[in-house]
């Protein structure tokens, strides 16, 4: 016998809990704790292998900080949009809720789009460097840093890089794995958000009383965003801008 999906039995705010905190919220936090360790291990692997690739391309060759900054900004804004969606729901503004959820999903998808673009441009990255000077021309905004690099390079320094695949070197392996899993997390989040969005068209599924369902998705989404901030800082920024004095 089947049971109809209904909106009557919502136990969330009424069930007994020792601490007064909701079970499912606590579950999400416990899960996020494990996900921290998951990303932590991947980031640790990246850091252990940083600078140890035997061949290029290296981070400084392929990273395009301006472009990645834009996608980072988009993801950050999607978190804000998520907050607004939740706020709209608690105030029973369902159409507002739907608009902000849709925009969160769109911004998340945009971020994924940027990732896809980035991955494909890295894997087709090709450069022949006849001399160090050409390198400076190519990466205009990093002139000073490149000058330092070139100071020790021999004359007629020749380098050819032919695409960054995961198999190419340690950088490719660790970078694609780490950011790939992050992208997978974002994608799952988008599916979750779209599901909630579609469900909101079914009477009684998404209501202010059932705000927890959206709250959990929001928590997950913010977590994924925070992980990206860490990745962007540690892998992108620290990978390209040298530490002062180094």
């Amino acid at each position: 016998m089947a049971t109809e999906v209904n909106n009557d039995t919502n136990h969330d705010d009424h069930e007994y809990t020792t601490t007064g905190l909701n079970h499912r919220k606590m579950l999400m936090w416990a899960f996020l704790g494990s996900d921290c360790m998951f990303f932590g291990a991947l980031i640790a692997t990246y850091l252990v292998y940083q600078g140890k690739s035997l061949v290029g391309p290296y981070p400084v060759d392929v990273f395009d900080i301006p472009v990645t900054s834009v996608s980072t900004f988009v993801l950050l804004m999607s978190s804000m949009s998520m907050v607004l969606a939740y706020a709209a729901l608690t105030q029973n503004k369902i159409s507002g809720f739907r608009i902000w959820m849709a925009s969160t999903a769109i911004m998340g998808a945009t971020f994924i789009g940027f990732q896809v673009y980035e991955f494909s441009s890295f894997s087709t990255f090709h450069v022949d460097i006849e001399s160090c000077n050409e390198k400076i021309v190519k990466h205009g905004i990093f002139d000073e840093y490149e000058e330092e690099l070139c100071a020790n390079a021999k004359e007629d320094h020749v380098e050819t890089h032919d695409g960054l695949q995961p198999q190419t070197n340690l950088f490719g392996t660790t970078f694609y794995t780490l950011t790939g899993f992050h992208g997978a997390h974002v994608t799952l989040g988008i599916i979750w958000i779209l599901s909630l969005l579609f469900l909101s068209y079914k009477k009684g599924m998404i209501t202010p009383e059932r705000h927890l369902d959206v709250d959990l998705a929001a928590l997950y989404w913010h977590f994924v965003d925070v992980v990206w901030i860490v990745i962007f800082t540690v892998i992108y920024l620290f990978g390209v801008f040298p530490f002062p004095g180094s």
Binding site: F38, A41, L170, T177
Partner: peptide
């Protein structure tokens, strides 16, 4: 909760090495 994700990552890295020729 804190320990299992670490072996999850190790096993994923090994899987990628075996299946896709990664360099871990």
């Amino acid at each position: 909760v804190l320990a299992f994700p670490v072996i999850t990552v190790a096993l994923i890295e090994l899987t990628f090495d075996r299946y896709f020729g990664f360099n871990f």
